[in-house]
Simulated assay, not measured.
Amino acid sequence: MTSAPPASPLPPECARLVETLRELRSRSGLSLAALGSRTPYSKSSWERYLNGKALPPRQAVEALCRVAGEHPGRPTALWELADAVWSGRAGAPSAEPAGGESAGEVQEIPDAHGAAEAAEAVGGAATLAPAPPVRPRTPAGATASGAGRSARRRARARHLGLAALGALVCAGVFALTLALWPTSGEARPARETTHADKASQADQPDKAEKREKVVVGCRGAECTGRNPVQMRCGAGETPRTLRTVRTEGRTLDIRFQPRCGAAWVRMWGQRVGDRVEIVTPGVKAQREVIDDAYETGQRRSTPMAAVSPSATGEVRACLVRKGGGRTCFGPGD
C-alpha cells in the first residue's frame, strides 16, 4: 500500500474512491472507533483513508462494504482505478527495447492507427503510449550481426505493440463495465403509465399504496438502540420533526417515525466532545458521542428510543458539551 498520497488536489479517480468510502461509512452509522472495532483496521487508519491521506488496502474496502451491507463490486472497481493512479502505474511510460542501438538500423513501430481504433471502439477510455522513434533503414553493406540485431529489435517492437494494444482493449472494456455497473440506490427510468395501469391502480388503491411504502426494519421496543438509517425509519413516509433547536452553531432535531414507533435526534454542526441524548418515557437514554473531527463534517443521528404516538410530548433531547454545559429541550418547550 502506498502511504504517501498523490499531489493535492486528489486525482478524480482517488477522489471518487474517497467519496464512495465516506458514503459507505455514513450508511453504516458507525463512528471511526466503532469501525475500527468491527474491522481489522484501526480508527487512525480509517481517518487517513476517509480523508484521502492514504490509499486503503483492497481488503479494507471490502471490509467496509460488509459492515455497510454494500456489494463490493463497484467500490473495488473504483479502488483498482485509484490504486493505478496512486501508485503511478497509470502514467508510467512504455518500456523501450533492451540493449544498445546500432546507427542505421531499422526499428518497426506498433500499428498506432489500429490501436487507436480499438480504444475508440470500447469507449475511448485509454490513450496510446508514445510509439518508439523510426530509425533510418540499414544502408547497403551492413554486417550480418547488425541484421540479426535489427530482426530481434523488430520482433521485440511487435511484441510491445501487441501488448500495448491488449492493455488498451482491456482498459476500455474495464471502463465500460464500470460505467454500466449498477449502484445501490440508483433510480431506474420510470415506465410510462398506460390507461390500463391507471385503471388497475384505481380499482386497487390499497395495493398501489403498499407498493410505494418502504418496509421498515423494526417497530416499537425492538427499535431501541438501533440506527434510524439502517432500519429505514427515516425513509419512505417522512418522519415528523417534533422540535428543532439551534445553539452555538449546532442544529438538533427531535425526529419521530410513527411506523417505527421510535424517536431520535438528528444533528449537524456538532463539535468534537459533544454528547447528544434522546430520552423517552420508561426507556434508557440513547446517546451519540462525537469523538473525532471527521464526525463533525456530516449529519449524524443518535440511536432510536421507542415511544408511542401518545407520549411524544414527553420526549426530551439533551446536548452535553465537552468540558461541561448541558442543554435539554422537548416538543413542548
Rank of each mutant, 00 (worst) to 15 (best):
R149A: 11
A112G: 03
T127P: 00
S184D: 10
S44P: 01
G282Y: 11
C328P: 11
G217P: 06
E209D: 14
R321L: 08
A131F: 00
S301G: 08
M231N: 06
E288C: 05
E117R: 07
A167I: 05
A131Y: 00
T302V: 09
Q257G: 13
P56E: 03
D203I: 13
V276N: 07
A157C: 07
V276P: 04
G261K: 12
A311D: 09
R158L: 13
V276T: 15
D333W: 04
R275W: 00
A92I: 04
C260S: 07
I109M: 10
E248S: 14
G225T: 08
R156H: 02
S145L: 07
G29T: 14
L50D: 10
G172D: 10
A208F: 06
M267S: 11
G282A: 06
S94W: 03
G172S: 02
E295F: 10
P239F: 10
R25C: 15
A179D: 11
S45G: 03
A187Q: 12
Q230M: 13
A125M: 12
E108H: 05
G323I: 07
P139A: 09
A115D: 07
G148H: 08
R232G: 11
G73I: 06
I290K: 13
R299H: 04
V320L: 12
A144H: 06
A187P: 12
T76F: 07
E237C: 02
S200E: 02
T194S: 14
F329N: 06
L21P: 04
T241C: 03
G225A: 11
T244S: 06
A163I: 03
P5R: 08
Q204K: 13
R240K: 11
E212R: 15
V215S: 15
P75E: 09
E105T: 15
L168A: 12
G282E: 05
S8P: 03
Q59D: 14
D274L: 07
R246I: 02
E47G: 07
A285S: 12
A144R: 10
D197H: 15
V315E: 07
P133V: 13
Q298T: 13
G282R: 05
P239L: 08
A221V: 07
R156K: 02
A68I: 06
K210W: 00
A155E: 09
Q230F: 14
S200F: 05
E314Q: 14
A33I: 04
T302P: 09
A163V: 03
T280M: 03
L180Y: 02
D83K: 01
V18S: 04
A306K: 01
G114K: 10
C328I: 11
P93F: 00
M1R: 08
E120V: 05
D206S: 06
D111S: 05
G73Q: 11
L165V: 01
K210N: 04
G324C: 02
S145G: 15
